[in-house]
Simulated assay, not measured.
Amino acid sequence: MQTRQFADVQFTPPQGDYSLVVMRPDVTVGSVKAGGLVEPRADWTEQARANLIAALKAQQAGRGGKTLVLERRDSFPGVSAETVAELERLHGAVGNSIALHKYAGFDLPTKRRRGLEYTLGEDAVRFGQKTGYDYALFLYAEDSFASTERVAMQVLGVAGCFIGFCAPNIGGGGQIAYASLVDLKTGEVVWFNVLQAGTQIAGIKMGDIRTPQGATQMVDRLLGRMKPGREIRRAAAQARKAQ
Rank of each mutant, 00 (worst) to 15 (best):
D8I: 00
F11I: 05
P13V: 05
D17Q: 14
S19R: 09
M23L: 13
D26W: 01
T28M: 10
K33W: 03
A34N: 10
G35L: 01
L37P: 10
L37W: 11
E39M: 06
E39D: 15
R41E: 14
T45R: 07
Q47N: 14
A55G: 07
Q60L: 03
G62P: 09
G65V: 03
T67G: 04
T67W: 01
L70K: 04
E71K: 08
E71L: 00
R72A: 10
S75V: 10
P77K: 04
G78A: 01
S80Y: 02
V84Q: 05
V84R: 03
L87R: 12
R89M: 06
G92S: 14
G92L: 00
A93K: 14
G95A: 04
N96P: 01
A99M: 03
A99V: 07
Y103K: 08
G105Q: 09
L108R: 13
K111S: 08
R112C: 01
G115Y: 03
Y118M: 01
E122L: 02
V125N: 05
T131L: 00
G132T: 11
Y133L: 03
A136S: 15
L137G: 08
L137M: 12
L139Q: 11
E142H: 13
S144R: 06
F145P: 03
F145I: 09
A152F: 05
A152E: 12
V155A: 09
L156S: 11
G157I: 04
V158F: 06
V158T: 15
G160P: 11
F162V: 11
I163H: 08
I163R: 12
F165S: 12
C166K: 10
G172E: 06
G173K: 06
I176W: 07
A177S: 15
Y178M: 02
A179N: 09
L181D: 10
L181W: 08
D183I: 06
T186F: 01
T186G: 07
V190F: 01
F192C: 02
F192W: 08
N193S: 10
N193I: 10
V194Q: 15
Q196W: 01
Q200S: 14
I201V: 15
A202T: 09
I209R: 05
I209W: 01
R210K: 13
P212Q: 04
G214R: 07
T216Q: 15
L222A: 02
L223D: 10
Q238N: 13
Q243S: 12
